[in-house]
Structure formats: structure tokens, C-alpha cells
């Protein structure tokens, strides 16, 4: 699994990911290297002062690892981790990951999917930044009010 590629692909719409995976897997055999799994993962965080570890809760997650076999090009492997309890989606992303990393025909389609995922992540980041902006506190102004 490419740690830079995976978040971008995972942010692309599910239906598009499944369609691209089906396209790039056509004529190739997809062998699961691990049994695709979906369920709840315990999310572990570190408290920043003393670095104490604690479990903040559970998140739905899925993972898959596949080997693609092409009659001409040979074999390549890919994997994916997804913060959704959807093993089918994770499997599709693993196929895309394998093709992109190997540079096989179909890598351009995966790159286009990645670009849509990137755009979705940018939109989400902008939306979150706007929410944070509304909660920004100007301590200088607070100080002036206290003085008055």
C-alpha cells in the first residue's frame, strides 16, 4: 500500500472507485493476498503532555491486499486501508493501488481517480478551515475589553 496514494484514493467517491477497479482488473486475475476484513478498529491516541496512550473509541474500518496477475505483464501487489466498514470498497482500492504502483495500463485511470480524491480532500480541508475560523479567538481584543 502506498501511504501517499491511499488517502487520496479513499477520498474519491465509492462508485467511481469500484468502476475504475473493475476497468483496470478486466482481463486480469485478482487474488486476495489476505482475507478482506471489515469491522471496528480501536483508535489509540497519545496524550501530548505525558505521552500516555489511551483508547479514544472505535472507528469502522476495512482493509484488503491483492495480487493482480496479468497474462503478459506478470504479477503485482497492492493494498488499501479504509475508514469505512466496507471490504468491497477496500478491495477495489487495493486493485487500483496495485496498478498505479506497477505502472501497468490503467494507471492513468487510477491517477484520474486519485485527482478526484485529492479535490475532495481539498474541499473537506477548506470546509474544516472555515469552521475553525468561526471559532478563532482574538486574545488582543479580549485584553482590551478587560482593560475597559
Amino acid at each position: 500500500m502506498d501511504p501517499e496514494l491511499n488517502p487520496d484514493l479513499a477520498a474519491a467517491p465509492r462508485a467511481e472507485a469500484l468502476a475504475v477497479a473493475a476497468l483496470v482488473a478486466a482481463g486480469r486475475r485478482v487474488e486476495p493476498v489476505t482475507v478482506p476484513a471489515e469491522g471496528l478498529w480501536l483508535l489509540r491516541l497519545a496524550e501530548p503532555v505525558r505521552d500516555d496512550r489511551f483508547f479514544v473509541g472505535e472507528v469502522p474500518a476495512a482493509q484488503a491486499a491483492v495480487e493482480l496477475r496479468d497474462p503478459v505483464l506478470g504479477a503485482c501487489r497492492g493494498g488499501a486501508v479504509l475508514l469505512h466498514g466496507d471490504a468491497e470498497w477496500a478491495g477495489a482500492l487495493a486493485v487500483c493501488d496495485a496498478v498505479a504502483r506497477a505502472g501497468w495500463p490503467g494507471a492513468h485511470e487510477v491517477e484520474a481517480l486519485r485527482e478526484r480524491g485529492r479535490a475532495a480532500r481539498r474541499d473537506l480541508a477548506r470546509m474544516r478551515a472555515a469552521i475553525r475560523e468561526r471559532t478563532r479567538v482574538s486574545f488582543a481584543e479580549l485584553g482590551q475589553e478587560d482593560a475597559g
Binding site: V30, V35, V66, E88, A92
Partner: peptide
């Protein structure tokens, strides 16, 4: 796309 046969089901 990923199909699993017995004994993996």
C-alpha cells in the same frame, strides 16, 4: 471483484 471461495468464506 474479489471473490473468496471455501474455506475463506
Amino acid at each position: 471483484m474479489i471473490t473468496l471461495d471455501h474455506p475463506w468464506r
